[in-house]
Design a protein around this nucleic acid. Structure first.
Length: 264
DNA sequence: TGGTTAATAT
DNA sequence: AATATTAACC
């Protein structure tokens, strides 16, 4: 029993994004605006040549407003979550390991253990994902719509498609349900934890669509300290893996140029 | 209380 | 187009 647990767990851990995938960009992604709003000045953060477009400040303003009081993060508006392929993969993994039966927003969220991720985030995503699966089976093979890039980016475990029998019967819920459960209060969102900002700019398209700036949440070391206490060394998954600032793999042409690839 | 779904809003 | 939010129901 123990062995089985550690088996699948280990396997799961393997599938998790490697550190290289996770760390890349964090602080360097903060726009001047946000940095100011949070009073976070990175030591030597030279202005990237790709100067952030001069008009996007509304979202950061939302934070600036409230950040005076240090309290209720629940009240605050979170930046929209950007579902990167990596994040989505985590989602799929979580669902796969839970078995579709147990894969409900809350548990998925817990297993994903991505800091800042809310149940609502997951619920919304799950809803769309189900729709995707649905039109996937009816569409026979794989007629991937234009809008399915994200979902298509991660392979759909076969048993998702065939409700045939016991997908989840052999996937009992792990009694331990690691990390995320230790993920105590998420309310402490605000202080200065927004560690990555992702600007996807369509600036090249001169017309209409100005740019879609999306804040991406990622949090850094704050809660690491907290989780240090209970976590057995053997179970060290990259817990507060929140540094998913790494979409732009092939969105490279646009987004990539906005990010200085080097750390300070 | 939380999940699902559909509709609607940003 | 992608994500969030809301409402209605279970």
């Amino acid at each position: 029993m123990r062995e089985e647990d550690s088996n699948w767990f280990a396997k799961w851990e393997e599938e998790l994004p490697s550190p290289e995938e996770l760390i890349p960009l964090s602080q360097s992604l903060i726009t001047p605006d946000l940095a100011i709003a949070f009073d976070l000045r990175s030591p030597n953060q030279p202005q990237p040549q790709t100067t952030p477009p001069p008009q996007q400040t509304n979202s950061s303003a939302e934070f600036a407003v409230d950040s005076s009081g240090d309290e209720p993060a629940r009240t605050l508006k979170r930046p929209r979550l950007v579902w990167t392929p990596q994040l989505h993969k985590r989602f799929v993994d979580a669902v796969a390991h839970l078995g579709i039966k147990n894969a409900v927003p809350k548990t998925i969220m817990q297993l994903m253990s991505v800091d800042g991720l809310t149940r609502e985030n997951v619920a919304s995503h799950l809803q769309k994902y189900r729709l995707y699966l649905k039109r996937m089976q009816s569409g026979g093979g794989n007629v991937v719509g234009e809008s399915d890039h994200l979902f298509a980016s991660s392979p759909v475990p076969t048993h998702f498609l065939h409700p045939t029998g016991r997908q989840s019967s052999d996937h009992f819920i792990p009694s331990f349900v690691p990390i995320a459960s230790l993920q105590h209060h998420q309310p402490q969102f605000l202080h200065r934890q927004i560690s990555a900002v992702n600007f996807t700019s369509q600036a090249n398209n001169n017309n209409g669509k100005a740019m879609d700036q999306s804040l991406f949440l990622a949090r850094q070391s704050q809660q690491q300290q907290q989780q240090v206490l209970t976590r057995p060394a053997s179970l060290h998954l990259h817990t507060q893996v929140a540094n998913y600032a790494d979409d732009l793999e092939q969105g490279a042409n646009t987004a990539l140029t906005l990010f200085p690839t080097r750390e300070n």
